[in-house]
Amino acid sequence: MPSLKSIRKRITSVRSTQKITRAMKMVAGARLNRAQQRITELRPYAVKTQEVLAAITRAVRATAAAEPSAPVAAEGEVVLDRPLHPLLVERAEQRVLYVVLTSDRGLCGAFNTNINKRGEREWKSRVEQGHEVHMAVVGRKGRDYFSRRGAPNLRYLPGVWDNLRLDSAQAIGKQILEPFNKGEVDSIYLVYNEFKSAMSQNVVVERLLPVGPAPAAATTEGEGAADATEFIFEPNREALLEVLVPMYVDISILRALYESMASELGARMTAMDAATKNAKEMVQRLTLEYNRARQAAITKELMEIIGGSEALKE
């Protein structure tokens, strides 16, 4: 049985840890309120921007398909005489860029583990299909994870979480769009944790470029209704897309960053709450063990005194 001194030291150590975890839980909870408010305000705007851009893309392609002289690719897809926008050009996905959003710090449960493992699965799956994979990582935890596993074409994007705002999203967008514009990659995917609640986060793999089809909510009346939509461009289609497409990229990246930040804080608050409860239970167990050991020592001393007294009587 451990000595009373060692048990007292363990109790003191666990109580100190409990104070730290309780403080970290309170800090994460306070920051989570602000982060949750930001993502709640931004999410509808980001989703609507994606819907509008996807609807415009579908409508323009539908209009081009209706023309008798519209050229058709081998797969049956309509080939536009002029691209909608350089960032909307669709190519066969042979080279893919994954942007994985992780945190700089740990102590947030399975937050980083889930996102890193999902990113690794996507990478290995693409390699098995014969695709060339490029990786861009935000956060030191993701950098360390993928560096140890020899991820191909790994690029680290530092300093994002220190001052998270629109400028951060624009800086990331500038770096990841460079290989897309040069034709080094055919598509870009975001891998991040979508915030549901403080106790629930969902890992999402979302295609950033080229713009995918409109969400299901935008096509409830059927595909034909979406294709039949007519748009009037003012001043013209090129000028509108020149503003809308970069705005979509920046807002989509900012939304992913906000989702990831809120998810990290929620996961940290939950993990620290569990750690605080575990520390409390451990203190109770150690206190019970201490009392038992102290009582055993007292009983032993009493028996020794009684034994000595009996020996003197004899």
Rank of each mutant, 00 (worst) to 15 (best):
R43G: 14
V100L: 10
R126I: 00
A54V: 02
L84Y: 10
A171Q: 12
E75F: 01
P86W: 03
R95I: 02
R43I: 02
Q94A: 05
C108N: 15
R165Q: 14
V137H: 02
P83Q: 13
R82E: 14
L87P: 00
H131W: 05
D144H: 12
G109M: 10
S103V: 00
R149Y: 15
L42D: 12
V78A: 05
R165Y: 08
A74T: 09
G119W: 11
V100N: 08
F111T: 05
A70G: 02
A74S: 12
G142D: 09
E132H: 05
D167T: 11
R121F: 11
F111I: 04
W123Q: 10
S125K: 11
V160Y: 07
E128G: 07
D104H: 04
V72P: 00
V99A: 01
E132A: 02
G150W: 10
E41H: 11
L53E: 03
R61V: 00
R82P: 00
G130D: 12
R155A: 07
I56V: 09
E120F: 13
T57A: 05
C108Y: 08
R43A: 14
S147R: 15
T57N: 06
A169N: 06
F111Y: 15
R148S: 15
W123H: 06
S103D: 13
T63N: 08
S103G: 11
G130N: 11
A55E: 07
L97R: 12
Q170I: 04
E132K: 03
R148I: 11
N153K: 12
I115D: 01
V99L: 12
P44N: 01
Y45H: 14
